[in-house]
């Protein structure tokens, strides 16, 4: 067999699946494959789907898959569920909702456990999305774990961030709190067939635009996300949602807006730096120094910043 990256690019789904496992486990083989694949990435539309547990993210992704396929484009999904902090195990249940397209060759769904990574994604999610992008999937959905108010990592990873809400999720004050809603490019009130959906959407529309100051030099301009209503179980409103994500993407490209791409690059670089730094600190030759530093901090002999400076000083170029 040819190398995994070439095989995956040629449409070998088995090779792709194994490559994603290597990416998750951060093996040297994954890094080698990424060197080959990275130049091919950057073409797909990466759409982040985030929101509280139980709002219907997976069902909405399933409905979006249908809609993307209706338009004839290929689509991949990276769906993250939480890892148990106690046992390291996980239930990856997002796929349950997405099985209608299980055997479609132009659909690829991969579940991923968060493995202790905070922020709503797994450490490998962004790289996995880049791999799926590089092998030619035209749309890639990144579904986060059920998030709270401040797990906003997906906004840096995706071109378009969709925040999913459900009726009865909170009042106007919830809508003006800092955090998740601030990073939304689009807000969706799902379960639109439930009582209160219209009112929730109206409240969100009112509060997300109320008091928004015009752009000023030197201040980040607040987003003014469109608010849509969907019923993922019936498909109601899903075509409109997909169209809205495409409008957002088109605007981004037309404006020459590099912020999302640079934000993603920064997240990827920081993750790689952290990985490399951890690996070097785990080096047997440095373990003793690391343990001494931990002991010194625990005993309050040394403050953490001084200890960090001393450890970094031992990291001579290799």
């Amino acid at each position: 067999m040819s190398d995994p990256a070439t095989a995956a690019r040629a449409g070998d789904r088995r090779a792709l699946a194994r490559l994603l496992t290597a990416v998750e486990n951060r093996t040297p083989a994954a890094e080698a494959a990424l060197r080959v694949l990275y130049p091919y990435a950057g073409r797909a539309h990466l759409v982040g789907i985030t929101g509280a547990p139980g709002t219907g993210k997976s069902t909405l992704v399933a409905a979006l898959i249908e809609e993307v396929r209706r338009g004839g484009r290929s689509v991949a999904v990276v769906a993250v569920d939480p890892t148990s902090p106690i046992t390291g195990g996980a239930i990856l249940g997002d796929r349950v909702r997405m099985q209608a397209r299980a055997t479609d060759p132009d659909v690829f769904i991969r579940s991923m456990a968060s493995r202790g990574h905070a922020g709503g994604l797994a450490a490998a999610s962004v790289t996995a999305a880049a791999v799926l992008d590089a092998v030619g999937f035209e749309v890639v959905f990144l579904e986060t774990v059920g998030t709270g108010q401040s797990e906003v990592e997906v906004a840096a990873a995706a071109d378009t961030t969709v925040v999913v809400e459900a009726p009865e999720m909170g009042d106007e004050i919830q809508a003006i709190k800092a955090g998740l809603l601030e990073v939304a490019d689009l807000v969706v009130v799902n379960k639109g067939d439930r009582p209160g959906a219209q009112r929730a959407a109206a409240q969100l529309r009112a509060m997300l635009s109320a008091g928004v100051a015009p752009a000023r030099p030197g201040r980040p301009a607040p987003k003014r996300p469109e608010v849509l209503i969907t019923t993922a179980t019936t498909g109601e409103g899903v075509a409109e949602l997909l169209a809205a994500t495409e409008r957002h993407r088109a605007r981004q490209l037309a404006d020459g807006d590099d912020r999302t791409r640079l934000a993603r690059a920064e997240a990827e670089l920081m993750a790689a730096l952290e990985h490399r730094l951890r690996a070097r600190l785990r080096d047997p030759r440095r373990l003793a120094a690391g343990e001494a530093a931990l002991r010194a901090i625990a005993d309050h002999v040394l403050d953490p910043y001084t200890a960090a400076d001393r450890l970094l000083a031992t990291l001579a170029p290799e």
Binding site: R13, T87, G89, A90, I91, L92, G93, V96, Q99, T103
Partner: peptide, 27 residues
């Protein structure tokens, strides 16, 4: 899960083809 496995669950009424596609994609 409590034994430390990562468990993918796909729900009821799966055809053999769906089971195998899921196994392949999830590796």
């Amino acid at each position: 899960r409590d034994e430390g496995f990562e468990v993918v669950y796909t729900g009821l009424r799966q055809t053999p083809e769906m089971v195998v596609a899921a196994a392949l994609q999830e590796d």
